[in-house]
């Protein structure tokens, strides 16, 4: 959620923050999941990106986490912040309490500490859902491009904005119970390609991909995805839409 009206910084001494981090190193047979507290002094404008890097630089060089763009664009740094999936890079510590917890995203394979293997799952999902425009033949690169209504292009981009951070899947109750569930990431992608006139696939084809209980019919509409999505994608609308289209094919 966007918070425009933030808590005013307290005057005087900076806060001493305690980050409680769920640590585990699967590569080490002796390691068991445990919480470890790190204390850092809060600085003005501090994000979890800054705080975690400071912890690694000054307290524990072995702490594992993933950041890439540190600007909320690449989707690498999703983790559970006080239990809720979110992008760590753009979470300001002033929006958190003096004590907060950081844990890796559930559902995905744990690499270590706060680092999870979203890439492997996403590659599998892309292959499973065949998330590319299916068109016949190669485009003629010398000719004028196909026209598209400006509104349609914008509508496609609206769904194309997904950064595959995994927050929606981590926020999804169904996915916690069904490891094969395609999640909002997958369903949103199908909605995106369904909207795209360049993709020649029909609803029948999409039914082949998502017409079961690991696909759209597995969704129980708990809307965790919709509520935690850092890009505010219209996931509820899209999943309901797909459900209507796919359900219609059953009759």
């Amino acid at each position: 959620m966007i918070r425009l009206f933030r808590k005013a910084p307290d005057s005087g001494r900076p806060r001493r923050l305690t980050a409680s981090v769920l640590r585990h190193n699967p590569a080490d047979p002796a390691s068991a999941p445990h919480w470890q507290d790190f204390v850092v002094e809060e600085a003005e404008g501090m994000t979890l990106f800054i705080a975690l890097n400071e912890i690694r630089a000054t307290q524990d060089p072995s702490l594992q986490f993933d950041f890439v763009c540190r600007a909320g664009i690449c989707g690498s740094c999703a983790m559970l912040i006080d239990g809720r999936p979110g992008l760590a890079c753009r979470t300001l510590t002033r929006d958190l309490g003096e004590r907060f917890t950081l844990a890796p995203l559930p559902f995905f394979e744990l690499i270590g500490d706060l680092s999870v293997n979203t890439g492997k799952w996403l590659r599998g999902t892309a292959e499973r859902l065949r998330t590319w425009v299916h068109a016949a033949g190669r485009p003629d690169l010398d000719a004028l491009e196909e026209r598209m209504a400006p509104e349609l292009a914008e509508a496609i981009y609206e769904l194309d904005r997904c950064i595959e951070c995994g927050c929606c899947v981590a926020g999804c109750g169904t996915a916690q119970m069904r490891p094969d569930f395609i999640g909002a990431i997958g369903l949103n992608k199908i909605a995106r390609f369904r909207l795209d006139p360049r993709d020649t696939r029909s609803d029948e084809d999409f039914y082949e991909l998502i017409g079961d209980d690991d696909g759209v019919f597995g969704c129980m509409s708990l809307l965790g995805c919709h509520d935690v999505c850092p890009k505010q994608l219209p996931l509820q609308t899209q999943i309901a839409f797909l459900r209507r289209r796919m359900a219609a094919l059953g009759f």
Partner: peptide
């Protein structure tokens, strides 16, 4: 221009002239 057009055919939702 060929690269933009190839990407358009592949699915990049370029903004369009209104």
């Amino acid at each position: 221009p060929k690269a933009v057009r190839e990407l358009a055919a592949w699915g990049v939702p370029w903004n369009r002239v209104r």
